[in-house]
């Protein structure tokens, strides 16, 4: 039995300790906002926050998250109030949308650690998240927009 806290909810799961956190989140807890894309930390679709860091849950053994704090896209905000989510909508970012949970979770760490990111900072933070639809230019704009929103007092 492994105890986890996901989006501030406590869970106890009966899985082997090496099982990737991704499959615990998706197939055991049925929180499906976190996506499977490659299973080898290449694409970032499975990105969640583990104690605030943007870990790739497809290669993170669930044991590493034991008694730790996990946040998924469902917990980024409960009311769509995160400036990145607002900016994503304003800039019409998603296309197929499958990678966007991971993109947002990565961007959230960038914005927390660097409230005023440059294009280079965005490259340095976001190049681990693949988008096959090519929404990168809009992701870039949305991150800048969210940064600006934060400065003027957050999302409306």
């Amino acid at each position: 039995m492994i105890k986890l806290t996901v989006n501030d909810q406590p869970y106890t799961v009966d899985v082997e300790p090496t099982m990737p956190l991704l499959w615990v989140i998706r197939d055991v807890l049925h929180l499906t906002g976190t996506k499977y894309g490659c299973g080898m930390a290449q694409c970032g679709a499975c990105t969640v926050h583990l104690n605030g860091e943007a870990v790739r849950s497809c290669v993170t053994p669930v044991k590493r998250a034991e008694n730790q704090k996990v946040t998924t896209i469902e917990g980024l905000s409960t009311d769509f109030s995160h400036p990145l989510q607002q900016a994503w909508q304003e800039e019409d970012v998603p296309q197929c949308g499958y990678c966007q949970s991971g993109q947002l979770m990565s961007a959230a760490v960038l914005l927390r650690e660097n409230p005023n990111p440059t294009d280079q900072d965005i490259d340095d933070a976001m190049s681990g998240n693949i988008c096959r639809c090519g929404t990168y230019p809009r992701i870039r704009k949305a991150i800048h927009r969210a940064a600006a929103m934060q400065k003027t007092g957050g999302a409306q």
Binding site: A107, E113, S127
Partner: peptide
């Protein structure tokens, strides 16, 4: 590493 690309995000 930096931001969302810290080593330990993928490397166990």
């Amino acid at each position: 590493g930096l931001y969302a690309l810290k080593c330990a995000n993928c490397h166990q």
